[in-house]
Structure formats: C-alpha cells, structure tokens
C-alpha cells in the first residue's frame, strides 16, 4: 500500500483539472437543494433535520456517480497507457483502492458543500445535529458503495458510454428494487420480500436517514464497498493473465 498515495494524488489532480467534475458537483448540489425546497416544504416541517434534502440522494447519485467513475477510468481507455500501467511495479489492489478513494473524496467534497444547510437549520430552529450527522454519514456510505459498484463495471468494460449506461442501469435496478418489492407484497412469502428488501441500499439508506444509526446498516455499506472492490481486483487480475 506504499504507492496508494501516489495513485490517489494523481486521480485527484485529474479530477481537479477536469471541468466536468465541477459541473457534476454543481448539478448535484443545485438539484438536491432545489428538490428539497420545492418538492417538499422543509420550513413547514419544523426543520429539525435535513431529511427532505437527503432523501433524494439515492436518485441524485445516479447522475453523479456514473460521471465520476467514467472519469476515474478514462486514463485507461488509451491502450498504450493501460498496458504500460500493467508493467509498473504496482499491485492491482493499490491501483483500485487509490482510484476508489480519490472518487470517494470527490463525492465527500460534494457532500461537504451541503454544510451551509446545517448552519441554516441551526439558525432557523432547534436542529437535531445528531440526526443530521447520521444523515451525512448515510449519504457518504451510500456514495461509497455506489462508487465501488461503478469501479467494478469499469473493470468489466472499457467503453465510456457503455460504462455510463451500465452503471446507471445497475444503480437504477438497486434503487428500483424497493418498488418491485412493494408490488410483490401480496404474492410472495414475506421472508423472501424481507431478505430481498434488506439487500436494497435504498432501504438501508432510509433507515439511517431517519436517524436510526445501527452498526448493522453501517456494516452493510462497508461490506458492499469491500465486496465490489474485491470483485474489481479479481476481475482485473484475471484480465492480466
């Protein structure tokens, strides 16, 4: 893991240099605030937490995350650059984790830029900062697990458009899972629905979002991240053979 900071720094520079990063973060922030303010009346709901803003995050990440991950692997679209990386004394794990952390840092920055809302909430009324903190944590973990899924897709295909569509598709499926489950409510046995529902990140997200911060939910996200990163490493190692 000695070379991890180098990969991380290189990816962060590449994000910082690309205008699309700023555009994506700006769109994400504008949409999450405007949706929060206009779709549901935040100020009328006594405003002790920021749930109205955060509950759109699973869908908003559908825009932000695929954009971030395609950019993350755009270096490797050049065949020469990609084969060169394989000859360098660096392990696949260092490479992937470095890239993933860089993308997660950018996503965290986007999230951190929502901080003024916390100040406003505190200023306007009696905000429950504990709940707000758990909402931030939930959104951050959700971004991480989406990003790791995005990395896995990038390891499978190299074409930029295909990556974008596949990531979007996968994330839509996971977020759409809850709707499917609702419609299945009366047809299938309850244990099946429950076990499927517990797999949905959206479901886990809303449970932390409500302020119920349990170890189980946090572990769910962390294990999602680890699982997808491992899958990415295994896939790339296999491709190297």
């Amino acid at each position: 893991m000695r070379l991890l900071p180098i990969i991380l720094r290189r990816q962060l520079t590449s994000y910082a240099r690309s205008p699309s990063t700023y555009l994506n973060i700006a769109i994400f922030l504008i949409l999450s605030v405007t949706l929060g303010l206009y779709v549901s009346p935040w100020r009328e709901q006594n405003g002790s937490d920021l749930q109205v803003f955060f509950r759109f995050h699973p869908s908003l990440y559908l825009l932000l995350i695929p954009a971030l991950t395609t950019q993350l692997w755009s270096d490797e679209t050049n065949a020469g650059f990609f084969s060169l990386m394989k000859t360098l004394p660096i392990t696949t794990l260092e490479w992937i984790v470095g890239k993933f952390l860089a993308a997660w840092l950018v996503a965290s920055t986007a999230l951190f830029l929502m901080f003024p809302l916390v100040i406003i909430a505190n200023y306007l009324g009696n905000a429950d900062n504990g709940v707000i903190a758990s909402q931030f944590l939930a959104s951050w973990l959700l971004a991480g697990s989406y990003l790791s899924a995005g990395c896995f897709i990038c390891a499978l295909v190299h074409h930029r458009t295909v990556i974008f569509v596949l990531t979007l598709g996968l994330l839509l499926t996971t977020s759409g899972l809850s709707y499917v489950l609702d419609s299945l409510e009366h047809q299938t046995p309850i244990w099946l629905i429950d076990s499927l529902a517990s797999l949905s990140p959206t479901w886990r997200f809303s449970s932390i979002d409500d302020g119920k911060l349990t170890l189980r939910d946090i572990l769910y996200f962390i294990s999602m991240i680890l699982a997808f990163l491992t899958a990415t490493t295994v896939t790339l190692n296999y491709k190297h053979r």
Binding site: N78, S83, L84, L88, P89
Partner: peptide
C-alpha cells in the same frame, strides 16, 4: 513486483493521454 522493478519496457502501442 521485484522483477518488474528491474525491467524497463518501451511498448509498441502508442502512448496517449488527453490532458497529462
């Protein structure tokens, strides 16, 4: 990793990067 550190390789593929 040790072996790779001892080798320098100029690939025949074209090296390219849009911004670097």
């Amino acid at each position: 990793l040790e072996a790779r550190q001892l080798v320098g390789y100029q690939l025949s593929n074209d090296l390219g990067h849009p911004t670097m």
